[in-house]
Computed example of a mutant assay.
Amino acid sequence: MEKLKFTFEVKPSTDGKSNYIAVTSITTQDDKVFLIPEEYQAVSLHKHIQTSKTFTTVKNTLKKRYQSRGVWIKMTEGILQTYMDEDDNMIFQDQLLEETTQEQLAIASKKCSEDPIVKILEKLVEGQQNREKQSIKKLADRFVIEKFDGKNSSAYQWMSVFEKECERFNITQDEEKIEIFRLFLEKSCNDWYSSMMIKLGLQSEWSEWKSSFLQTYASKGWTTSKYALSFKYQSGSLLEYAVKKEKLLLEVRKTIDEGTLIDIIAAGLPDFITDRINKEEIEHTKHLFNALGRLEHLVTRKKFIKKREDTKPIKEKCGICEKLKKGIRYHSEDSCWFKTKMNTEKDKKQIKLINNSELECELQCEDQKN
């Protein structure tokens, strides 16, 4: 026996909220059909089938509930030992499988499809799936993740958070992940998504989308790391600086230990701040944040003192007013009202002195001629 035909079907889980792929029957090359018991149909129990390339195609094909496909899979040593015993009897999990025929299977399937209750259930399931699609946008609003615009610090970190949020809301199907992925992209990333949709389509593997996303947007240089490490406190709130520094460092390397994280954050603080913090008391970043919150008054007071010094009134006597005997007045000489008048008088005196010098020179010359 060279190959076996396995029938796969998408079935609802016990709670009815999700689907799973089931292996319902096995057909031999001489058209003998063997049924898999209900409790052993989950494909997760059929490890050797999951590793075959054929199953990958089946997984991409079956998207809707109650869809089914029958495919031939070549016999391997693992499959042979799993589904056949030494006497060529069809078994699974040490149980003999029930044998039936193709005709009996077709009759049973027809009766089941014509059953009014089954038809009602199918309509209910279809309606539920439509409602689930409509609620995807509402579900996305509950995701705790910022949108990706291509400039986020770490594409790897962002993708990890996105996949964890999908798990939290039980979004397991590739098609659902690809569909909701679009709602968290901004700017030029939307163009990238449109291009991928043209190339791959919605009914493709999520792993292909993920791989392309990381190859496109993952930072391959040191710029992000250098910026996170060199980021220092300049002005403003100490706590805001520390929180932002922690975020930058974790985006670069999530696995950084907390002691190193504290040291790097403290390295970017002014000396007059770190001198007031006892390092032995800081075991977690929350302890550092708490300490910085208590020291906020040091940076706010410094700003207040500087502002008061800048607006300090001038206490210089005006020399012009004093010379003109206008009284003692406190203002700059440049803004004095009598400055123009004083300059005019100086110009007149200078002209008079120049004229007198010229006359004296002419008289001396005349005396010499005589």
Score class of each variant (00 low, 15 high):
157 Q>L: 07
159 M>L: 15
160 S>R: 15
160 S>N: 13
161 V>T: 14
161 V>E: 07
162 F>W: 14
162 F>E: 06
163 E>H: 14
163 E>T: 15
163 E>S: 12
164 K>C: 05
165 E>K: 14
166 C>P: 13
167 E>P: 00
168 R>F: 06
170 N>A: 09
171 I>T: 00
171 I>P: 07
172 T>W: 11
175 E>T: 15
175 E>P: 01
176 E>G: 04
176 E>V: 05
178 I>L: 05
181 F>H: 02
183 L>K: 06
186 E>I: 06
186 E>Y: 07
187 K>E: 03
187 K>Y: 00
188 S>C: 08
189 C>F: 07
190 N>Q: 13
191 D>T: 04
191 D>Q: 05
193 Y>K: 09
195 S>M: 06
196 M>F: 06
199 K>A: 09
199 K>L: 01
200 L>N: 05
200 L>R: 12
200 L>A: 05
200 L>D: 02
203 Q>G: 01
205 E>V: 10
205 E>K: 15
206 W>Q: 08
207 S>N: 04
207 S>V: 08
208 E>N: 07
208 E>H: 13
209 W>F: 13
209 W>Y: 11
209 W>Q: 02
210 K>H: 08
212 S>G: 02
212 S>R: 10
212 S>D: 00
213 F>G: 06
213 F>N: 03
214 L>P: 08
215 Q>S: 10
216 T>K: 15
217 Y>H: 05
219 S>C: 10
221 G>H: 10
221 G>M: 06
221 G>T: 12
222 W>Q: 13
222 W>G: 01
222 W>D: 09
224 T>I: 15
224 T>L: 14
225 S>F: 14
226 K>V: 10
226 K>R: 15
226 K>P: 00
227 Y>I: 14
227 Y>F: 14
229 L>A: 11
232 K>M: 05
233 Y>L: 01
234 Q>V: 11
235 S>N: 02
235 S>W: 01
237 S>K: 09
238 L>V: 02
239 L>F: 03
240 E>I: 12
240 E>F: 06
241 Y>N: 04
243 V>T: 13
243 V>E: 11
246 E>F: 05
246 E>L: 03
251 E>C: 09
251 E>Y: 05
253 R>G: 00
253 R>P: 01
254 K>R: 09
257 D>E: 07
259 G>R: 11
260 T>E: 08
